[in-house]
Design a protein around this nucleic acid. Structure first.
Lengths: 172, 172
DNA sequence: AATAATTGTTATCCGCTATATCTAATATCG
DNA sequence: CGATATTAGATATAGCGGATAACAATTATT
């Protein structure tokens, strides 16, 4: 159950899906997607898989998944919070957040500290190593991952895309 | 292992995630997302979950998941294809496509027919019932699901979003 | 003080994804 | 032609993410 296996496999396994247009002069010509190409959900999922794939590649040296990166980011911006609060804002269910934290804590990226006010809850803190990894991850994400997205889409489109997705994630 | 359970559960379970902004005057105010809101992959995944959720709701009367709908669509637009071809263009691995087809076939929505040319492969065909369900599904998707998306985003934005997502799914 | 609610946790289940392997059937090639 | 390789579908299996129920410890409510 090495931590590295998780992120590394995610990079590797995603390759299987990438040959989807499949048919590099293979079978009998490309199939008709039909109204599938007009289905927003379909393109949304396809794009999301690609983007996550690229994220994993870009941040592979640090062995961080998108979910782990988001946790570190949130811990940094919101010190003094407990597991329930962090998990909730990320849309992670508390039971599933336990193993995630175990993995991060076992790598000495964050730590649980029993709260003095409420001895039920764990205050989550980034370790020094966690802060260092986060800083490196931020640079990789910005300079490799997000930069590539901006390059492909164009800066204006990239911004517009972000805005629309945020609207969908909220007002939908 | 009723088929209905699958799609019905998908609708129900998605509700758990929807209370993510969580904190309707609950704990201690909203947490800071920080650069998370600028991460395209993050918004992409969040939006995708919401859109799939809405898809499931809109098409719930027909008990079709997005993946099942995409299969029916593809079978309709590409008659005479076998399992490998359909699965490949949808990014589904052949082993995993078997159970999917079993479910659709058990509901009499499609059928496998041994090919006469190549007796290894199964030609996939929509049944009459499959065509009828697909027709109803298309209407629900267009008039309820996609219509709501267009309403929220605006027609021009919706089109631009589709275009950008398609570009990401291809050229990325 | 008794009861209810909350936090973290464990166990468990389901669905999607991935790999290896098997068989039947076909293709390739000496 | 016959031996070998390849392909299509299927099975088994493993892993991860997501979901629910239940429990102990603690805190809140009444």
């Amino acid at each position: 159950m090495t931590v590295s296996k998780t992120a590394a496999d995610a990079v590797r396994s995603s390759r299987a899906l990438r040959k989807e247009p499949v048919d590099p002069a293979g079978d009998d010509s490309m199939l008709q997607l039909g109204e599938l190409s007009g289905l927003l959900g379909y393109s949304l999922k396809r794009a999301q898989l690609r983007v996550f794939e690229d994220f994993l590649r870009c941040v592979a040296p640090l062995q961080l998944t998108p979910a782990q990166f988001s946790v570190l980011l949130l811990l940094d911006k919101n010190p003094g919070r407990n597991q329930t609060e962090i998990a909730n804002t990320l849309g992670i269910l508390r039971p599933n957040f336990v193993a995630m934290l175990d993995a991060l804590e076992s790598r000495d990226l964050c730590a649980r500290m029993r709260s003095t006010n409420d001895r039920r809850s764990h205050i989550l803190v980034l370790t020094d190593r966690g802060r260092a990894v986060l800083a490196r991850a931020k640079k990789l994400v910005a300079n490799k991952h997000e930069a590539r997205l901006i390059e492909v889409l164009g800066p204006a489109n990239h911004a517009a895309l972000l805005e629309m997705l945020a609207k969908l994630a909220q007002e939908f």
